[in-house]
Design a binder for these strands. Structure first.
Lengths: 230, 230
DNA sequence: GTATCGGGCATTGTATACACGGCGCCGCGC
DNA sequence: GCGCGGCGCCGTGTATACAATGCCCGATAC
């Protein structure tokens, strides 16, 4: 894996690469929730020494992706169904306020940007294959990021979002049905309309619906995961 | 206080000590905002090697207390007046919701606990000497932590609070006048009464006032002292 | 005088070696 | 057979050595 260390596109330090690698494995479920890891094993997997691995692991522990037991071990984070539900409730609070702010402050350029993003999103939306889902998720994050930027407090909103992102992103969005995806897109469209109307209250309620729907999609997909391949 | 989501490492660990030491120096202003630090200097100050210092520094960067420039240096976090104001606005959002939840869920035991804390707080309140201020601040944090615990989502609320704590705690609360302190205490008392009445709306508005007052106290205290250079 | 290029140096980034501490296992005693 | 204490192994915690990187600043050309 490090045998081909892209000479030109050194996409960051080794520690950063390790961070992304481990994070990806945690999110995708390759490391089972609650399971134990060791620094040395990760170092071997990545073909690097323990030092950058330690750095990545500490960072992921701060994100909540891993839990460290001092002088003992590293464990993959695990959240109960109830905790995930709590987290979505918190997200409703946060994003409602942020989106209302955005509706009051947003400019025409940003609305156009959101429209463009949503066009691309829907162009891809028909294909639900795993790797395309990944691209859709990325676009979706970008959409929400632009909304956060329009709230006039982008830096701190990002910090908050980061603090609670991990338990939510783990496995989310990968199991959306076509109907759920369609509803999600409809919410985005309605949100853009609310922005065009500069109507904070409308925007607030749209985003509330959006996240509530996501919450239940997630909880349902946790409950009935049998069929899908990992 | 075990519930405190402090970064990994047991209390005696060198890395943990380094974390607390540097954090304290940043908060107290011993390291001026925006100034540059080096790992080696910090290691010498603490009498340890760079390794645990690096760990502490990374943690503090995640907290927002420090800013790292890759391959170059470590800088103490600095926030503009406007950013601090934004942060307090965000806190109003968050704590309003959390406090309203707490008002709906809180039990008699927790109300008694808050009352006890507030009694202690006011017993100390007359003395505004710097080291006593520190104790008052600790009690104040504990008060708000108990409220968060009553919101039925303590773990994630703590994560959120942690994410935005640093720019606020830096220098805050140290310059409260006697009148401001008295008002703060009055808010706490009123909040307890709102909890007794199980009135979420009342509690929400009390905490809003509380944080708005804190915001302006902080902004004024930033403006007043000799540091007019910035 | 000013802009640009290149070498030196300070500082971070990574690897390796060693120390410390906890957990589990085995043997002993009861 | 069961509980308890010492011992060894495994894994993290810390120190040190070396490599790589980016800024600072002087030299040089225009």
């Amino acid at each position: 894996m490090d045998a081909h260390p892209d000479p030109a596109g050194d996409a960051g330090s080794v520690a950063r690469q390790a961070y992304r690698y481990i994070r990806e494995r945690v999110i995708s479920g390759a490391y089972a929730p609650g399971s134990r890891l060791t620094e040395e094993q990760l170092a071997r997997e990545l073909g690097v020494s323990r030092t950058p691995v330690r750095e990545a692991v500490r960072q992921l522990a701060a994100d909540g992706a891993l839990v460290l037991k001092p002088n003992y071990g590293i464990f993959v984070g695990a959240w109960s169904r109830d905790e995930v539900a709590q987290l979505f409730d918190l997200r409703v609070m946060l994003e409602s306020e942020i989106t209302a702010l955005a509706a009051a402050n947003i400019g025409a350029a940003e609305i156009a940007q959101l429209t463009g993003l949503q066009d691309e999103l829907e162009a891809r939306g028909c294909d639900l294959s795993p790797d395309n889902i990944e691209r859709i998720a990325a676009h979706n994050r970008e959409f929400h990021r632009v909304v956060a930027a329009a709230s006039a407090k982008p830096r701190f909103v990002a910090m908050l979002a980061n603090a609670i992102e991990m338990p939510i992103v783990q496995q989310t969005f990968r199991r959306y049905s076509a109907a759920q995806m369609a509803r999600s897109f409809a919410h985005h469209r309605e949100l853009i309309d609310a922005f065009r109307a500069r109507d904070p209250a409308w925007a607030r309620h749209v985003i509330s619906c959006h996240i509530h729907a996501a919450k239940h999609a997630r909880l349902d997909s946790d409950a009935a995961p049998a069929g899908a391949a990992q």
